[in-house]
Amino acid sequence: MANIREIAGLAGVSVSTVSRVLNNHPYVRDEKRQAVHQAMERLDYHRNLPAIHLSKGTTNLLGVVLPSIEIPYFGNIVEGIAEEGLKHDLQLVLIQTNYNVEKELEALELLRGSLIDGLIFTSRAASLKIIKEYNPHGPIILCEDSDQTDLPSVSIPHEKAFMDGLDYLLTKGHTKIACTLGRKQGTNSHKRIKAYQTIMDKINQPVREQWIFDKCLTIEDGIHLTENWCRMTERPTAFLVTNDQVAAGMVLTAKEKGIHMPEELAILSFDNQQIAKAMHISTIDIPIKQMGKKAVQFIQNTEKRSKVSLPFQLIERATV
Rank of each mutant, 00 (worst) to 15 (best):
E234K: 12
L94G: 07
Y73P: 01
I95R: 04
G292I: 03
N204W: 11
A278T: 01
L61P: 02
R5S: 05
H25A: 09
I286Q: 13
A2P: 11
S55Q: 08
L110T: 00
G118N: 04
I223V: 15
W211P: 13
A254I: 14
K160C: 07
S14K: 01
I223G: 00
V13L: 03
R124G: 09
T149Y: 13
I315H: 00
L90K: 13
L252N: 09
K289S: 04
D30R: 14
A248G: 03
L151Q: 07
Y27F: 15
I223Q: 14
P311N: 01
N48Y: 13
T58S: 06
G9Q: 14
K32P: 05
E102Y: 05
R124T: 07
L181S: 08
R112V: 02
M163A: 05
M1F: 12
K56L: 05
S68Q: 12
T253V: 09
E41T: 02
E84R: 07
L115N: 01
L265Y: 10
K257H: 04
M261N: 05
I95P: 08
R235F: 02
G173C: 09
G173F: 14
G9D: 14
S155D: 11
H190S: 11
P50M: 12
E316I: 15
E303G: 05
L170I: 07
H190I: 08
D30K: 15
A247F: 07
P152N: 15
E227D: 05
R231T: 07
V207D: 13
Y45H: 07
E31Y: 05
